[in-house]
């Protein structure tokens, strides 16, 4: 298997595809906007150094989050050392399960966000309201359109969403945007 990040352009696409979720991941852990962005930024710099090892999209993402966690960890260690010499490092807040849960959550959100942003405005509204848990009649009422229109817009959204959520989305993206 060969590395998927071959050119500078590939790396840029990889960055643009994943920055927001790594940032969101860091934001959840640190609660600090600036720090989250700094750590997310550093994550990509580190991953770049070892881009040759990234042989699949899945591996790339898994690697990205592993590095992110590692950097967060390091940051905590330094903070603890600075703030309280005697403090025991509390590992419970970054245990494995928590990490897996956070990655799952951020990836789900990222994929939904990217997919939904590709929809035309009215269709997007329908899908967003659906995601909020509203039924078709409720959506129709809120947007002032008929239930049939809602159904129709949902149908038209289907292909776009399906494409954007596909396993091969990133590979296709690289093909379309790459050099």
């Amino acid at each position: 298997m060969s590395a998927i990040i071959q050119s500078n352009r590939d790396f840029e696409i990889f960055f643009r595809e994943n920055f927001s979720s790594v940032y969101a991941f860091m934001k959840r852990y640190t609660g600090d906007d600036e720090l989250a962005a700094d750590l997310a930024q550093e994550t990509f710099i580190r991953v770049y150094e070892r881009r040759d090892e990234i042989v699949s999209v899945d591996y790339g993402k898994a690697f990205l989050y592993t590095v992110a966690r590692h950097l967060y960890w390091n940051h905590c260690k330094h903070q603890r050392a600075k703030e309280n010499y005697f403090a025991q490092l509390d590992e419970s807040n970054v245990d494995d399960y928590d990490f897996l849960q956070e990655v799952t959550r951020q990836e789900t959100m990222r994929m939904l966000y990217v997919a939904i942003n590709q929809l035309p405005p009215q269709t997007r509204n329908v899908i967003l309201l659906n995601l909020e848990g509203k039924t078709n009649p409720e959506v129709a009422e809120e947007l002032g359109i008929s239930v049939n229109t809602v159904k129709c817009l949902k149908k038209s959204a289907y292909e776009i969403l399906r494409g954007a959520l596909s396993k091969n989305y990133f590979v296709i993206l690289m093909f379309l945007l790459g050099e």
């Binding site: 920055f19 927001s20 979720s21 940032y23 969101a24 997310a40």
Partner: peptide, 13 residues
Amino acid sequence: DQERGRQLMEARW
């Protein structure tokens, strides 16, 4: 968070 991430993206890139 996703939106904020997008906003920060350009500068961080």
